[in-house]
């Protein structure tokens, strides 16, 4: 049995320690917002936060995550109201939507570490997340908006 903390909830899962965290999260714990896209850390669809970092869960063995803090898209905010989520909705970013759990999880780390990212910063942070529908232009716009929302939010606090 492996102990995991996902979205502030403790789980004990019976899984091969070599099983990628992605499949534990999806198939055992049942949180399907995190997606499979490539299996080799090329596309970012499987991005989750492991100790606040945007790890690719498809290549992360569940054993690495044991006892660590895992956050998936379902746990990023309570009301779909992380600044990135609000901005994604405001800018109508998704098309098919399949990649956007991963996109938003990556964007959240960028926004935490850089409250005012430039286009170049966004490219540097987001080039690991593929969107086959090609919504990149809107991802950029949404991240700028999210940064603005975040600045306003922290200013009002």
């Amino acid at each position: 049995m492996i102990s995991l903390n996902v979205n502030q909830k403790n789980y004990r899962v019976d899984a091969d320690p070599n099983m990628p965290l992605l499949w534990v999260i999806r198939d055992i714990i049942g949180l399907t917002g995190t997606k499979y896209g490539c299996g080799v850390a090329q596309c970012g669809a499987c991005t989750v936060h492991l100790n606040d970092e945007a790890v690719r869960s498809c290549v992360t063995k569940v054993s690495r995550a044991e006892g660590q803090k895992i956050v998936t898209i379902e746990g990023l905010s309570k009301e779909n109201d992380h600044p990135a989520q609000i901005a994604w909705n405001e800018e109508n970013v998704p098309q098919c939507g399949y990649c956007h759990s991963g996109q938003i999880m990556s964007a959240a780390v960028l926004l935490r570490e850089n409250p005012n990212p430039t286009d170049e910063d966004i490219d540097a942070a987001m080039a690991g997340n593929i969107c086959r529908c090609g919504t990149y232009l809107r991802i950029r716009k949404a991240i700028h908006l999210a940064a603005e929302l975040q600045r306003k939010g922290s200013a009002s606090k």
Partner: peptide
């Protein structure tokens, strides 16, 4: 207009074929 499928595509709740359990 905002598409009604967008909120569920930003919080992981939209069910794609791969998500059927």
């Amino acid at each position: 207009a905002h598409r009604p499928d967008i909120p569920i595509k930003t919080n992981g709740s939209a069910v794609f074929g791969i998500d059927v359990q």
